[in-house]
Design a protein around this nucleic acid. Structure first.
Lengths: 193, 193
DNA sequence: GCTACGATGTAGGCATCGTCAACATTTAAA
DNA sequence: TTTAAATGTTGACGATGCCTACATCGTAGC
């Protein structure tokens, strides 16, 4: 009765439990064996689904990007151009604050160093959508004379940077703690308003 | 003659060797024992100088911040206000590109999670200098009517984000690879030009 | 229905790691 | 010169990632 030989849904269970522990302790303290203990399976069981710890983290990252894309997809209801860019940037930051564990994985160089092709392509596609939106905005007159590549660089840096500032503890000291969300929007509006 | 009992300068040797391996492999593959092997001392010798791996990384981070501060200090020759802000932002990005290993340590959440008080205070002081410069610029008329807190948030996000985009491999695909330095300056000028 | 096979889980082992304790050697202060 | 602090060595412990051999389950063909 108790603990059948097969878990039944170990792969998903590993992913969700990993994300939980990831938000408590960092990625450095994420251990496949501890995960196995938490789920009541043997220490080698996770290897059937993720041959390597890097594979687990990669799968988590892929799920994270999908979640991020879904969150920013809601901005498609905004009119194309700079309003949509603004909505996407805000959605990105909101997602990062609501899913700081996933965001941390995506920002971790030691995880991304081993990014699979799937993950890389997903990120490239995400970047391409932003590029297209920038060009659409420029066609509508927004910063028409700027180099699109410069605008893209600026947009990515600003959104990624804002997400990091909002997420990393190290910044929570110097950054004002009141009206965070409001100030974030105001900051983004300096570029996209 | 070979290998005297005391190394003589083990602490410094550990730090420099650690930074070397850090730029080759990531922080996840940095091992105190491997460091000891590289330097020809016993596996426990590093513990005399850094009781814990986190202490080593913290010391590396402190050295990194000092290096970063020195790099941005060169901007003090620029006239105070937005020109100096611009120079500091560019110096920050240049430093990050020239010292990507150190920058990676400073951006690693799992390192900064255990930041010592010394390190935190150093970063707060660095942030304060930027705040002061922003206020000086506003007194001179630059974006006079904006909330200083919003400007600070924007500046930090933009510089940190640009440094990350320039440093992380994951961004090197979507970002154009030609005239990087020029586009970086142009991007920063969108805010500080 | 039965059977063979792939998918999934278990048990044990190996090399490595971080950290600790006990001991050795060197340096420097008293 | 004696003695204590700094620094380095050796050995050990528990934990980890990952490997191999084996056990159990589900299911696709017959």
């Amino acid at each position: 009765m108790n603990s059948p030989y097969h878990h039944g849904n170990l792969r998903e269970a590993l992913l969700t439990r990993a994300i939980e522990t990831l938000s408590e302790k960092g990625v450095e303290h994420l251990s496949l064996r501890a995960l196995a203990r938490d789920l009541g399976v043997s220490h080698a069981a996770p290897l059937r689904h993720f041959p390597t710890k890097a594979d687990l983290l990669n799968a988590i990252a892929i799920g994270g990007v999908h979640s991020l894309i879904a969150a920013t997809d809601a901005s498609q209801t905004c009119p194309s151009g700079s309003p949509r860019l603004r909505a996407m940037a805000l959605a990105y930051v909101d997602w990062a604050m609501a899913n700081s564990a996933l965001h941390g994985v995506l920002r971790n160089p030691d995880v991304m160093r081993h990014a699979s092709d799937d993950l890389s392509q997903l990120l490239v596609a995400f970047a391409d959508r932003q590029k297209q939106e920038i060009e659409a905005a420029q066609r509508q007159g927004w910063r028409k004379d700027e180099d699109p590549a410069v605008l893209f660089l600026h947009l990515v840096a600003l959104t990624a940077g804002t997400a990091i500032v909002m997420t990393d503890e190290i910044y929570r000291g110097p950054i004002t703690t009141s009206n965070i969300r409001q100030k974030t929007a105001a900051s983004i509006d300096l570029f996209l308003g």
